[in-house]
Simulated scan of single mutants.
Amino acid sequence: MYQKKIPELLDCGLSVAIKVVGGKWKAWVIDCIRRGIRRPSAIHREMQAVNPRIVNLHLKELEELGIIYKEIFAEVPARVEYRLTPVGMSILPVMEALEQWGNENKEYVNRHQAGYAPGNCALLQETN
């Protein structure tokens, strides 16, 4: 099993929040479940741009973090659904605030993305 060389510092609230919703696809997975898309196959269909293996890894990690839980129904064939835990529900206002910020600033970010280069602080200077 892979172990990180530098341990995660999860004493900082921002680090914890980024661990939950950070990355390219986790917020999308959480949003699918929030909207009632709960079965793994339906989540894969909704997120068809993402490799199903990656979606499954995010589902597993979110489950391990206690953000979602897996409900297994005793049917043949077995049916699995994911649901948000109370802690998972509590992240939704944060995601809504991030979405609102993104919608309000997407043109600005897109306009400046082409001019961005590592070490270029021009963006920070513009907002001051």
Rank of each mutant, 00 (worst) to 15 (best):
S90E: 11
R53S: 07
Q113H: 14
L65V: 11
E126V: 07
L62F: 11
M89L: 13
A42L: 03
L9H: 04
A42W: 00
V29P: 15
L98C: 12
R53L: 08
N51D: 12
K70H: 09
N120E: 11
E99Q: 08
E107T: 15
L59F: 08
H58M: 05
A114W: 09
R39E: 09
C32G: 10
V94R: 02
I91H: 01
C32H: 07
K26L: 00
P40I: 03
Q113S: 15
Q125C: 01
N128A: 13
L10E: 00
I37Q: 02
Y69L: 04
E46S: 14
L98I: 14
D11F: 12
Y116L: 14
P77G: 03
I91W: 04
E46V: 07
I68M: 05
C12M: 04
I6R: 06
V50G: 10
L84R: 11
G115I: 10
E99W: 08
L59N: 07
E81D: 09
Y116F: 15
M95N: 12
K70S: 13
M1I: 01
R35D: 13
G23R: 12
L123E: 14
V16F: 00
E81F: 02
Y116P: 12
Y108T: 12
K24V: 09
E64Q: 07
E64Y: 02
K19Y: 00
L124G: 13
E63N: 03
W25F: 07
I68C: 03
E71R: 02
L98D: 13
P93H: 06
Q113F: 15
R39C: 02
H44V: 01
Y82M: 00
A17Q: 11
N51T: 05
M95Q: 13
E63H: 02
N110A: 08
H112T: 07
W25M: 05
N128P: 07
Y2G: 05
C32T: 04
E71C: 05
M47V: 09
N120L: 15
V76H: 04
I68G: 08
G88V: 06
A49M: 07
V29F: 03
L14W: 09
F73T: 07
W28T: 14
L10T: 03
H44S: 00
R39D: 02
T127Y: 06
I91K: 02
K19P: 03
V94N: 01
A114G: 12
H44D: 06
Y2Q: 07
R111C: 10
V20Q: 00
R111S: 15
P86Q: 06
K26T: 01
L124E: 07
N128R: 14
L10K: 02
E61Y: 01
P40N: 08
M89G: 08
P52F: 04
N56L: 00
V29W: 04
P118Q: 10
W101P: 09
L92G: 06
E104N: 15
E75H: 06
K106C: 10
W28H: 15
G22T: 03
R83I: 03
E61P: 05
K24P: 05
G23L: 15
I18L: 06
R83Q: 12
G36M: 11
A122L: 09
G66S: 04
V94Y: 02
R35A: 13
E63K: 11
Q113M: 15
P52A: 01
E75M: 12
W25L: 01
N120G: 12
R38C: 12
G36R: 09
I37F: 09
K4W: 00
E99Y: 05
V50S: 06
C121H: 09
E8H: 00
T85A: 01
M47I: 10
F73P: 00
